Simulated assay, not measured.
Amino acid sequence: MSSTPAVDVSSLHVRRGLHKALDDVSLQVPAGSITGLLGPSGCGKTTLMRSVVGTQIIESGTVTVLGEPAGARGLRRRVGYVTQAPSVYTDLTVTENVAYYAALYGRDRAAVADTIAAVGLAGLAGHAGNAADALSGGQLGRVSLACSLVGDPELLVLDEPTVGLDPVLRAELWEHFRALAARGVTLLVSSHVMDEADHCDALVLLRDGRLVAQLTPRELRDRTGEERLEDAFLHLIRGDAAGTETEGTR
Results as ranks from 00 to 15, higher is better:
residue 24 D to T: 15
residue 126 G to E: 14
residue 24 D to K: 04
residue 45 K to W: 03
residue 74 G to P: 06
residue 198 D to H: 06
residue 77 R to W: 09
residue 85 A to L: 13
residue 225 G to Q: 05
residue 175 E to R: 14
residue 7 V to Y: 03
residue 2 S to Y: 00
residue 171 A to E: 10
residue 16 R to G: 15
residue 196 E to V: 04
residue 90 T to M: 14
residue 137 G to F: 13
residue 231 D to Y: 09
residue 93 T to K: 08
residue 79 V to N: 02
residue 245 E to N: 08
residue 198 D to E: 09
residue 15 R to Q: 14
residue 77 R to M: 13
residue 215 L to D: 08
residue 145 L to W: 06
residue 112 V to D: 07
residue 67 G to M: 04
residue 1 M to I: 10
residue 97 N to K: 11
residue 43 C to G: 14
residue 236 L to K: 01
residue 115 T to E: 04
residue 240 D to Q: 00
residue 158 L to V: 00
residue 239 G to N: 03
residue 159 D to I: 03
residue 206 L to I: 03
residue 26 S to G: 13
residue 108 D to E: 15
residue 14 V to T: 11
residue 10 S to Y: 12
residue 178 R to N: 03
residue 160 E to A: 01
residue 68 E to D: 09
residue 199 H to E: 07
residue 98 V to F: 08
residue 17 G to Y: 06
residue 194 M to V: 15
residue 206 L to M: 01
residue 244 T to L: 09
residue 158 L to Y: 01
residue 112 V to M: 09
residue 88 V to C: 10
residue 46 T to L: 07
residue 154 E to M: 00
residue 212 V to D: 03
residue 241 A to L: 11
residue 130 N to D: 15
residue 119 V to R: 04
residue 105 Y to H: 15
residue 226 E to P: 03
residue 186 T to E: 02
residue 1 M to F: 05
residue 175 E to V: 08
residue 30 P to C: 14
residue 139 Q to W: 15
residue 204 V to W: 01
residue 44 G to T: 01
residue 60 S to C: 12
residue 152 D to P: 04
residue 99 A to Q: 05
residue 250 R to M: 13
residue 88 V to Q: 09
residue 12 L to V: 11
residue 42 G to L: 10
residue 80 G to V: 03
residue 11 S to A: 15
residue 120 G to E: 03
residue 134 A to M: 14
residue 114 D to F: 08
residue 216 T to F: 02
residue 200 C to R: 07
residue 211 L to H: 09
residue 19 H to I: 11
residue 214 Q to T: 13
residue 27 L to M: 15
residue 235 H to Q: 10
residue 243 G to W: 13
residue 242 A to T: 02
residue 108 D to F: 04
residue 97 N to R: 07
residue 118 A to Y: 14
residue 121 L to E: 13
residue 54 G to T: 15
residue 89 Y to E: 07
residue 74 G to M: 13
residue 146 A to K: 04
residue 13 H to E: 14
residue 106 G to H: 08
residue 91 D to C: 07
residue 14 V to S: 07
residue 49 M to P: 12
residue 120 G to I: 14
residue 56 Q to D: 07
residue 185 V to Y: 00
residue 53 V to C: 12
residue 111 A to D: 08
residue 232 A to S: 04
residue 188 L to C: 01
residue 103 A to V: 15
residue 61 G to V: 15
residue 193 V to L: 15
residue 86 P to C: 11
residue 156 L to V: 02
residue 122 A to N: 02
residue 211 L to E: 04
residue 27 L to A: 05
residue 116 I to R: 05
residue 117 A to L: 13
residue 232 A to D: 00
residue 94 V to S: 05
residue 169 L to E: 08
residue 70 A to F: 10
residue 86 P to H: 10
residue 218 R to C: 12
residue 6 A to F: 00
residue 248 G to Y: 04
residue 212 V to P: 10
residue 52 V to G: 02
residue 220 L to H: 07
residue 90 T to C: 12
residue 106 G to Q: 15
residue 235 H to K: 00
residue 48 L to D: 05
residue 13 H to K: 10
residue 207 R to E: 13
residue 175 E to L: 08
residue 136 S to R: 09
residue 237 I to K: 04
residue 250 R to P: 06
residue 207 R to P: 01
residue 236 L to V: 09
residue 81 Y to D: 02
residue 216 T to K: 04
residue 149 L to W: 05
residue 220 L to Q: 12
residue 149 L to K: 00
residue 247 E to C: 00
residue 185 V to Q: 01
residue 117 A to T: 12
residue 223 R to C: 05
residue 162 T to E: 01
residue 208 D to F: 07
residue 122 A to T: 14
residue 133 D to P: 07
residue 43 C to K: 10
residue 163 V to A: 09
residue 236 L to N: 08
residue 155 L to G: 09
